[in-house]
């Protein structure tokens, strides 16, 4: 099979799969017994309505604001901590086990208490996003900086690079690959954190849209909200991945040698 033929087949299969899925959903949802899952012919108009009336877009803007503030704070502190852990034996010896332990914790458990410290609104949601994202950034940064290949460091030194030059030419580019993939993962985890906070801490933004539909048993609006939220997470991650590939393009090249 040639490359393009394979691509064409893949595309056809995907389209067929999507059509089959929608058809199945339509058939299943049209049955009045399944009132909880209305068919696409009702969900998509509801989605369209939500978008055109501005409700969904406004909620999305709020969710994105939470996400981006949380991400920026996590990245800044994650980079600082990650570099500290990589560079100072003291920080590594003492913080590494703490980071591992914290990473094992299902952070959602903290939702019942954090309101008191951060408030239940924007700050609380941002805080939850940070609990979801920060450690990933710390871990990928510190492994990235620690795992610079020895040979390449030696090569840098052999060609007269020292100190800051060595960082610029060898250590940072090498660590960048890890850090960039950490940030992509961070985006995926961040949107999960944001949505979880909006649903569980106090209803807000997209979470409020969904909860409101649930409370009023508007199942078409409920499914529209869920579908939109799932798509949003997917699109954000895909965008982060695309950016990552751009940033560290050399990483995706096949190794011929």
């Amino acid at each position: 099979m040639t490359m393009s033929a394979q691509r064409r087949n893949a595309l056809l299969l995907r389209i067929a799969s999507l059509v089959a899925f929608l058809a199945l959903w339509q058939w299943y949802g049209s049955d009045p017994i399944h009132f909880a899952t209305p068919p696409p012919t009702e969900v998509f108009p509801a989605l369209w309505e939500g978008i055109t009336e501005g409700e969904i877009l406004g909620a999305t803007a709020g969710t994105l604001a939470t996400l981006s503030v949380g991400l920026v704070i996590s990245i800044v502190f994650g980079l600082i901590l990650g570099f500290a852990v990589a560079l100072f034996p003291w920080a590594r010896n003492t913080l590494d086990p703490l980071i591992d332990a914290a990473y094992a914790m299902p952070v959602t458990m903290l939702i019942p208490v954090i309101g008191v410290y951060t408030g239940l609104d924007f700050r609380g949601r941002v805080f939850i996003v940070i609990t979801y994202v920060l450690l990933v950034i710390v871990i990928t940064t510190s492994t990235g900086v620690r795992d610079v290949p020895r040979d390449l460091l030696e090569t840098g030194r052999a060609f007269g690079l020292k100190g800051r030059e060595l960082w610029r030419a060898v250590i940072l580019p090498s660590a960048m690959a890890h850090i960039a993939s950490g940030i992509s993962t961070g985006v995926a985890r961040g949107i999960r954190g944001a949505i979880t906070a909006e649903l569980l801490l106090i209803a807000a933004d997209l979470g409020a849209y969904i909860l409101d539909a649930q409370a009023r048993l508007l199942t078409d609006q409920l499914l529209a909200g869920i579908l939109w939220t799932l798509l949003l997470g997917y699109v954000l991650y895909a965008a982060a991945l695309w950016l990552e590939r751009r940033l560290v393009r050399w990483r995706t090249l096949g190794d011929l040698a």
């Binding site: 949107i191 999960r192 649930q214 409920l222 869920i226 799932l230 997917y234």
Partner: peptide, 18 residues
């Protein structure tokens, strides 16, 4: 892959109804 990377918490209200 879509569900792998996205926020599954959004499904909870639906799951409760189901």
């Amino acid at each position: 892959r879509g569900l792998f990377v996205t926020s599954l918490a959004a499904l909870l209200p639906l799951l409760i109804i189901l």
